[in-house]
């Protein structure tokens, strides 16, 4: 048999290549089919939540807070159920973070409330003694960028096929509709808040950053 092979070098080289490549094929090809599937019931962020997400990114929350609960008992005791890859299916970009100076926030919506975030963002040390988190009073006056959030969502829908406007999913619609929806969501958040200045701004049709951020944090479940 080997004498026969040794006399046909080209055939031998092709067979050798196929033999070696086989291991590569069975390792690589299944990964193409296993693209990240959203977990059942996962919805993309609404416009207001996306605006809050932009605030989260702008103020570098992800530099100190992770959004990834690892499957260890110590972590699940404190933060809740471990994270699944399908939960990040609509995150663009993902905000896993790489260092925990503060606690993980992946399910912070389960155990903190609007009122708590309001008190905490104004002065963290007043709520959590010894906290080194800086104060973020500017979020109570700066306006959230709803227009960019709408552009962001529209782009994700057009380019990545994020399922906005589908049955049971958040509605995008036209810019006018989206703006009205975001304001309605903001009014709901503001009604649970205590800060009169924020309430007045929302009533006047403006959305401060803190409202958008709280909407985003409450959506982390």
């Amino acid at each position: 048999m080997f004498h026969w092979l040794e006399q046909r070098p080209f055939f031998f080289a092709v067979m050798l290549f196929l033999t070696v490549a086989f291991a590569g094929f069975i390792e690589i090809i299944p990964d193409f089919a296993k693209a990240s599937q959203p977990v059942v019931g996962k919805k993309p962020s609404t416009i207001l939540q996306l605006a809050g997400r932009q605030v989260y990114i702008k103020d570098s929350c992800n530099a100190c807070h992770s959004q990834l609960i690892r499957p260890f008992k110590a972590e699940t005791d404190r933060y809740g159920m471990y994270s699944l890859s399908g939960e990040y299916a609509y995150d663009r970009p993902f905000l896993w973070g790489s260092k925990r100076t503060g606690p993980d926030l992946h399910r912070v919506g389960n155990y903190r409330t609007t009122e708590w975030h309001e008190n905490h963002m104004m002065d963290p040390a007043a709520v959590v003694p010894g906290s080194i988190m800086p104060k973020y009073p500017h979020m109570f006056t700066n306006l959230a960028d709803i227009a960019t959030a709408y552009a962001n969502a529209s782009t994700q829908k057009a380019v990545f096929g994020t399922p906005y406007d589908q049955k049971g999913m958040p509605k995008l619609g036209t810019w006018k509709e989206a703006k009205a929806q975001a304001l309605a969501d903001a009014k709901k958040i503001a009604s649970e808040m205590k800060n009169q200045q924020v309430k007045d701004m929302v009533a006047a049709g403006k959305v401060p950053e803190i409202v958008a951020l709280i909407a985003y944090l409450n959506s982390l479940k």
């Binding site: 005791d77 809740g80 389960n110 155990y111 903190r112 409330t113 609007t114 009122e115 649970e192």
Partner: peptide, 9 residues
């Protein structure tokens, strides 16, 4: 205000 549920925690 609101206190969230701590079910299962």
């Amino acid at each position: 205000g609101t206190m969230p549920s701590f079910k299962g925690r």
